[in-house]
Design a protein around this nucleic acid. Structure first.
Lengths: 331, 331
DNA sequence: TTGAAAGCGCTAACAG
DNA sequence: CTGTTAGCGCTTTCAA
């Protein structure tokens, strides 16, 4: 693998080719200042012919804006962060801003290393994201000389935070079951030290009252399975609907229901959470679930850092983005 | 959200504080040139006190190296790319190199946009990755003025390509089954227009001969289910082992076996491919499978661009990294 | 041993 | 309307 480095064409090359000074080239290409349209055209043509592209480093040195932002994430395996990151990237590329990916691996030293590298590179801002909403950075980012936006993560008071609206998401899930005529809706969910779990449970209770219990457990299929066994071994009438805290739990529950020869959705409707498509679509019957719109979260976070990095102010606080219901066959 | 921008401390501030010139500061901090140890110390102390960090833009402008690389990926939902990206990021951060994440979304126009943005930002190199090995970029990257490394993707002849060793991976999977005393090993896999599928099938045939058929299908649980039905409805003795093309197919197969009251691993052993942990661990029994070492692939790709970007040469061609067997309960 | 000066590629005043 | 000049923050000769 050889590696040739032909000197890139600079503004000087364009100036020479067009027979003008570099200042004129600069103005022509940036549509600044006044000049004869003919000159401008000639310069632009010369630039195009030479394939001239302005050096962003030089530009940034002068303008104090690098048109880059950093994206910190601790999620190396998760299924949420990838669409989110894609959303950030997509939102910003249109504005000529590129995104530095920083995998922190939940390691404070590594995080520190990344942040220093980002600051050295003069990033215009930082997007911090985590694997769960109530996770805070291992480091105080609020004293950095650049704006920080938190997405799918907690931030210090007054900061810009963008998260899915878990309450509303749970609400439309339960409302959907109610609309289907279900009367005894149970809620099988994850560990109650997750804030999202508590918020969703609250929405559930607000709609269903306290008749059915909320079953807290693990984010695992086996817990869904187990919870169904629990519910169906009580003395009272079993539920006619299950609202599950995520798609894995829902899948475990569906398996357990099938073992008991309970028809879905005829006898029991099931709704999951996350719209983890690869699971939701393969479950039989395919799973009705809640989509948190991770890509849109990312996009908004991207636009937020962009705004802040331009020095424009924006109101801090937590912005909750609506979830949506994806109806499949399990309800 | 307010947005204060206190001017960053520059080399001039350090020079003033230490009572020397900026040239001396530069040399002191970079351990260049000769000077009294005492002076060097004094300057370093002043720099540390002021929290001075050199501006990478200015440095890059001069040195022609930006200490950044671009990572192009078309994978927005996949489970492979995230560890791979983390590997790239991890390998490079130690060298002060940051990684630009570019989600191309399989859109040629967007890809083009990203590449232009990267070139403008003077990236030292590009890592191209895809969702499947035989996918090539929508664009000719080989004529770029910077080195390009392909990971989990095909590249033009002579380029540096880093992929998992599918043949070896399939081999150790099948060998593991043979070692367990299995005699009739079937292979249920994905669509045969994937090169990885063909390579793995070849390894399987080389070890097992042509007695059992290779069943090509979809990367879906339902196909695993269906394939088991096929195999068990033949007139001949059913297999005593299944080597599946990925973990989803394996899971579908396991479900089908359970439906038939076939004991795993007593009657039939099952081995998957991908080590998609969230699936492999939740399957009952948990799934023995092949790990492609995506993170290591990423790390190597990162180190490769780094080498090339320094102008050092390295031999092109396809480097295959070994897969490993993760033994769980299904075998 | 240290400092002055030039220059990386570009933009923005200010002259001409 | 166009060109000269200064300077962004840094490294690197070259003189002192």
């Amino acid at each position: 693998m050889k590696n040739e480095q032909p000197r890139r064409t600079t503004i000087h090359d364009v100036a020479k080719a067009a027979g003008v000074s570099i200042a004129t080239v600069s103005k022509a290409l940036n549509n600044n200042g006044r000049m004869q349209p003919e000159t401008r055209d000639r310069i632009k043509r010369a630039a195009a012919e030479l394939g001239f592209r302005p050096n962003a480093l030089a530009r940034g040195l002068l303008s104090k804006r690098s048109f880059t932002v950093g994206l910190l994430t601790n999620d190396t395996y998760g299924r949420f962060s990838l669409p989110m990151m894609a959303g950030v990237s997509e939102a910003l590329v249109d504005h000529g801003v590129s995104v530095f990916l920083c995998a922190t691996n939940d390691d404070p030293a590594l995080t520190h290393l990344h942040i220093e590298a980002l600051l050295d590179k003069q990033v215009d801002g930082i997007v911090f994201s985590a694997t769960r909403l109530d996770r805070r950075p291992h480091m105080d980012l609020s004293s950095l000389p650049i704006p920080v936006v938190y997405v799918f993560a907690e931030g210090p008071p007054g900061s810009v935070v963008i998260i899915p609206d878990d309450y509303q998401g749970a609400r439309i899930a339960v409302q959907h079951l109610i609309d289907k005529g279900r009367k005894r809706i149970a809620h099988i969910t994850g560990p109650d030290d997750y804030r999202a779990v508590r918020v969703r449970a609250e929405a559930y209770r607000d709609l269903c009252g306290g008749d059915e219990p909320v079953l807290f457990g693990e984010w695992e299929e086996s817990w869904g399975h187990q919870a169904v066994d629990l519910l169906w071994s009580r003395d009272q009438a079993p539920p006619d609907a299950l609202f599950c805290g995520n798609d894995q739990i829902a899948r475990g529950a569906i398996d357990a229901l099938r073992d008991r020869n309970i028809a879905i959705p005829e006898d029991v409707s099931v709704v999951g959470f996350d719209n983890w498509e690869i699971v939701a679509e393969q479950t039989r019957p395919s799973l009705t679930t809640i989509d948190m719109g991770m890509k849109e979260l990312g996009r908004q976070a991207g636009l937020a850092v962009l705004t802040l990095s331009k020095g424009q102010s924006m109101s801090g606080g937590t912005r909750k983005l609506p979830c949506s219901l994806v109806v499949r066959q399990s309800s």
